[in-house]
Amino acid sequence: MVNKIISINEIKKIIGAIPDPEIPVISINELGILREVEFDNDECLITITPTYTACPAMQFIEEEIKDRLGEIGINNVKVKLTYSPAWTTDWINENTKQKLKNYGIAAPLHSSCNKVFQKNVMMNCPHCNSTTTELISRFGSTACKALYKCNTCKEPFEYFKCH
């Protein structure tokens, strides 16, 4: 049995490194999608949570998890979806927020995820750091992002909404 000698921590490391399909510079571990790795006898049980209820990336992530575990000889894998506790941008740490910013996405501002963000909140442009920015649309290219434009460098950018 190959899987007996691979620790849960190693598995977490391997599948946790899977890049988020929509924001490939951060991993599913950094985003907080990967919740739990357990063994039930020979079955490897992985629990993931969607960022949004309809997150279309979930199926892709499930397949990717199975592929990567298959590569290290773990084939009896079950991927479980949980809604509780509900995913929140609070799980994204400072280091990951910096990665988002470098990628051109303004990171979630505060850790009050139950507050809907306001139009007049000051948002720093991830390109030039200017604060003279403007909300264009509360819904961007994906459900988790909003669309802004920078009035200084004139570039559009996305903001990862507090959730």
């Binding site: 969607p50 209820t53 949980t82 809604y83 509780s84 506790p85 509900a86 809907v116 459900a143």
Partner: peptide, 13 residues
Amino acid sequence: ASIASKTIKEIKY
């Protein structure tokens, strides 16, 4: 309850 607490964040938007 878990579906509700997930979906309500979206509804507020």
